[in-house]
Structure formats: structure tokens, C-alpha cells
Write a protein that binds this DNA or RNA. Structure first.
Length: 258
DNA sequence: GGCTGGCCCTGTACGC
DNA sequence: TGCGTACAGGGCCAGC
């Protein structure tokens, strides 16, 4: 997403902007008048650096999608925020379920976005090591899957990739204590699952789209998520599903023993 | 400070 | 066919 978006908007001035009146999107208008310097990313957040020392922070939520279109008016009730650029194009955040979020904050000041402020290391950063993951996980008594979703131990792992990584690592998503060898396997699994997702262009379940409007292919490569009732590809045991701390969770009761 | 559970929101699937 | 209900999910927040 960031890679596709950055060359299209960097250097462009935001001549006008607006957002849905809800608290989640109304801040979009505050970017008007600023010029986009570069586009960065932290976890699931896009950080659009503005030339006036502020960051436009965009979280796509579950169903959010950014797209560029020509300026002529298109009536789309699901556009929650928009930024008109000086080249005549409009960057739009289309988010059917309004789970996304937009904020404009002084550069690096992310206090208003607690999850971003407390975000763990990037999964492919050198600082993210098996030891770092193990130390982070053992600091809390939350279930291991819940910790992954909190983004504190590592950034960018959502529900789908948490299930996939835990399955690949052979770790029960419900455990509250992870051994060092389990953490090592989980570290490798997280990187492998995210690398595969990137290589496949993302995971398309219902509403997800890439920046150019296409769909990802990773859903065709999922080994665990969404396959409850089907045989585990590793041991042929029937995969099961349950709600864990409010999130749908699929796991193999044989491969992922406590 | 850490943890839990509820809430937001809307399209889709399913049962009646 | 049409209606009602359950479900999905990321992150915030109130309450414990």
C-alpha cells in the first residue's frame, strides 16, 4: 500500500480536504494547505508526513481502502475522508464499516492514538529478534494471540496473520505463557506469514482492495484461518474455531497443543 | 497499570 | 421473496 501510494502523492499539495463528521474521520480536513513530503508506515498505520511539521495518520481498519481518482464528482457514500491534490486528483479513504481512523498530529506525537504510540517493533526490523519477542510475551499474562493483536510485542499482525503464525509455529493461541523455543518458532512464523502475504499481494476476504483497486491472492494460501471444519494440512486433524477474547480463532487441536 | 468485555458499523449469510 | 438475526473485525474505552 505505502509503496504504491508514495510516488503518486509525494510532493503534492493538499488544496482541499474533508471527512465524515464522526470523530474518527473529521480530522482529515486539517491537512488542507499542507504539502505531502513523504509516506511512511508503522504497523498498520500509514504516516503521511506534511511539510508543516505534522503527520497525517491513516488507519485503514478492516475494510478501508485508499484510492486516487480524477477530480470529477463521484457519489460514493462510503468515502469517509478525502484530500484534493494540486494535480487535480483526489485521494480518498473508502471505508464501508468505519473501522478506519484519521488523525493529524505534530510529527511523532501519537499520544492520541494509544496503539500507535505503544507499537512494537516492525516484524522485519533487525531489532525484532526471537529474544525480543519472548521477553515481550512473558511480560504479560494475556493469551498469546491477544498479545499479538495488541501490536505491542510486534507491529502489524492482525487476526488472520495471528492465526496463521500460531498454526505455523505450533503454538496454542490460548496459552498465557510461551517458552523460549515456542517464541523462536513464533518469530520465524510471523515473518514467514507476513512475507507470504506481501508476496501474494495481501489477503482479500470481503472488502479489502489494493491501492489500484485490485484484490490480493493470499486468501488462497491460508493454511488455518477460515478453514474450521477442514483437515489440518499438517496432521489431518479437523481444524476448530472458537471465540478467544472476542476474536474468532481457528486452530489445530493436535498441532497446537499447550 | 493490567486486564476484560462491550461497543462501533454495515454487508453478507442464513434461518424462518 | 422478504424479514430478522448473527456474524465478522481493529481499536478504543469504561470499569474492575
Amino acid at each position: 500500500m505505502r509503496v504504491a501510494l508514495a510516488p503518486l502523492v509525494a510532493g503534492r499539495k493538499v488544496v482541499d480536504a474533508g471527512g465524515h463528521p464522526s470523530a474518527k474521520f473529521s480530522a482529515a480536513a486539517q491537512a488542507a494547505g499542507a504539502t505531502i513530503e513523504r509516506v511512511g508506515r508503522r504497523g498498520k498505520y500509514l504516516l503521511v508526513e506534511l511539510d508543516d511539521g505534522r503527520d497525517l495518520v491513516i488507519h485503514l481498519g478492516m475494510t478501508g481502502r485508499l484510492r486516487l481518482r480524477a477530480a470529477e464528482h463521484v457519489d460514493d457514500p462510503y468515502v469517509r475522508a478525502w484530500w484534493a491534490l494540486d494535480d487535480g486528483e483526489v485521494l480518498e479513504l473508502r471505508d464501508v464499516r468505519r473501522f478506519g481512523r484519521v488523525a493529524v498530529v505534530p510529527r511523532g506525537r501519537h499520544d492520541s492514538l494509544p496503539t500507535l504510540a505503544a507499537l512494537g517493533p516492525e516484524p522485519f526490523a533487525e531489532t525484532f529478534t526471537p529474544e525480543v519477542l519472548w521477553q515481550a510475551l512473558r511480560r504479560s499474562r494475556l493469551r498469546v494471540k491477544t498479545q499479538l493483536l495488541q501490536q505491542r510485542a510486534v507491529a502489524g499482525v492482525g487476526n488472520i496473520y495471528a492465526d496463521e503464525a500460531l498454526w505455523r509455529a505450533g503454538v496454542d493461541p490460548a496459552v498465557r505463557k510461551v517458552s523460549r523455543p515456542q517464541a523462536t518458532r513464533l518469530h520465524a512464523a510471523i515473518r514467514a506469514v507476513l512475507a507470504a502475504a506481501l508476496a501474494n499481494g495481501g489477503t482479500t476476504l470481503r472488502d479489502y482492495r489494493t491501492v489500484d483497486g485490485g484484490t490480493g491472492r493470499n486468501q488462497d494460501h491460508l493454511a488455518c484461518y477460515g478453514r474450521a471444519g477442514e483437515p489440518c494440512t499438517r496432521c489431518a486433524t479437523t481444524l476448530r474455531r472458537k471465540v478467544l477474547d472476542g476474536r474468532g480463532t481457528t486452530w489445530c487441536p493436535a498441532c497446537q497443543r499447550r
